[in-house]
Design a protein around this nucleic acid. Structure first.
Length: 201
DNA sequence: CCCTGATTCGC
DNA sequence: GCGAATCAGG
């Protein structure tokens, strides 16, 4: 397949929107590889994005040096999984599964001392939600609606937290928002995907 | 293993 | 110009 203006345009938009090369690749359709996307993106002079590999660092010997501070984490907001066209909705999402949602190394309580901790009860270590009243990153599971409320970085950013629609990352309510085929508004079926709805892929 | 983007190089 | 193969880090 060739790079028509149309496809190039789509590539640009999606790339700048923060989609990964492979996501863009299969968004562009069959016969487009991740490499093709990356190659084209580079040839187009699109802004390179944080790569896992950034070698080309040749410090001779003494080279501790403070690593550059990551001003902005490389997690721009891809939109929630629409079935078809992107549409300005909650333009925020916890996109990739565990990889991106991973809270990172537990910086938590440091077990300092020798004596083995006696079995504590009475305080189930599950403060965040019950106390905060908000569903945070740490509360998420496959049973919890991960629909973002607010925007990442904002102080009160949290997640919906309702029981998720089994098989879906969101509750029924938000599934209805997230999964919308681009159909004429007339015959757009109002009800959200029911249990066991076929997964789109 | 999976993923990521970057680069190379034959076509 | 294109993209598979390869590289290299997460």
């Amino acid at each position: 397949m060739s790079w028509t203006d149309e496809r190039i345009d789509k590539l640009k938009r999606l790339w700048e929107q923060g989609m990964t090369a492979s996501q863009i690749a299969d968004a562009l359709g069959e016969g487009v590889s991740r490499n093709a996307v990356i190659g084209k993106a580079h040839r187009l002079g699109l802004q390179s994005r944080p790569s896992p590999v950034k070698a080309t660092d040749a410090p001779s010997e003494a080279a501790p040096a403070a690593a550059a501070a990551p001003a902005q984490p490389p997690a721009p907001p891809p939109a929630p999984p629409k079935v078809e066209q992107p549409e300005p909705e909650p333009a925020v999402q916890a996109s990739q599964p565990s990889r991106m949602l991973r809270p990172g190394t537990p910086t938590g309580p440091v077990p300092p001392s020798g004596p083995p901790a006696p079995p504590r009860r009475s305080i189930p270590a599950k403060p965040s939600k019950e106390i905060e009243g908000k569903t945070t990153l740490l509360d998420l599971s496959d049973k919890i609606c991960k629909w973002p409320i607010g925007h990442p970085g904002e102080p009160d950013f949290h997640f919906c937290g309702q029981p998720s629609n089994p098989g879906f990352p969101y509750c029924v309510e938000h599934c209805a928002v997230a999964y919308q085929a681009q159909l004429p508004r007339r015959d757009r079926r109002p009800p959200p995907p029911p249990y066991g709805a076929p997964r789109i892929r």
